[in-house]
């Protein structure tokens, strides 16, 4: 079923998220290929940068603290996209939904303690080849008001 274009421009948020050291480490190691177990995010594979999990090494490094793996941003920046998908007025069929495209722009690193505020809006809704496309933008600012992450999220809903 085609999505209703009148929802283009609908806004979601703001949503607040506080970046935590253990969550950063957990995410970096899950992407990096570690095998988490009870009480540990797992042993870091050799290709994973210590800046992402070793607080001591990171404090001596270029950023002065642990930093987030760049796409950690999706943990909080996804919120307007997931809100749009779950919006009862849009009535997206979740089972027919796949993530079609993604763009993320990183304007600064993220460190433990950063407080991110994310807003987003439906940028576009269109149909192509019997599929519906839903495009949501997101913008996440830190506690200093600086924009750190911008995202463009495209869902494809198979007809």
């Amino acid at each position: 079923m085609a999505l209703d274009k009148r929802f283009i421009g609908r806004e979601y948020g703001p949503y607040s998220y506080t970046v935590g050291a253990e969550k950063l480490r957990e995410f970096a190691l899950a992407v990096g290929g570690a095998r988490p177990g009870a009480g540990t995010p797992g042993e870091p594979p050799p290709h994973v940068s210590p800046l992402l999990y070793d607080a001591q090494a990171a404090k001596a490094g270029p950023y002065g603290d642990l930093i987030a793996f760049p796409s950690f941003a999706v943990v909080f920046a996804v919120r307007p996209f997931s809100a749009a998908i779950a919006d009862p007025e849009l009535a997206v069929n979740m089972l027919m939904l796949v993530h079609g495209e993604q763009e993320l722009e990183f304007l600064d690193v993220m460190r433990p303690g950063d407080v991110m505020t994310t807003t987003g809006r439906i940028e576009n809704i269109f149909d192509k080849a019997r599929m519906s496309f839903l495009v949501v933008s997101s913008e996440s600012r830190n506690q200093h008001g600086k924009t750190v992450v911008k995202g463009t999220w495209t869902a494809v809903i198979r007809g």
């Binding site: 270029p62 930093i67 760049p70 495209e101 993604q102 763009e103 993320l104 722009e105 990183f106 304007l107």
Partner: peptide, 9 residues
């Protein structure tokens, strides 16, 4: 250095 990534599409 993962902190140097600026964009992905």
């Amino acid at each position: 250095d993962p902190g140097r990534i600026r964009r992905v599409r």
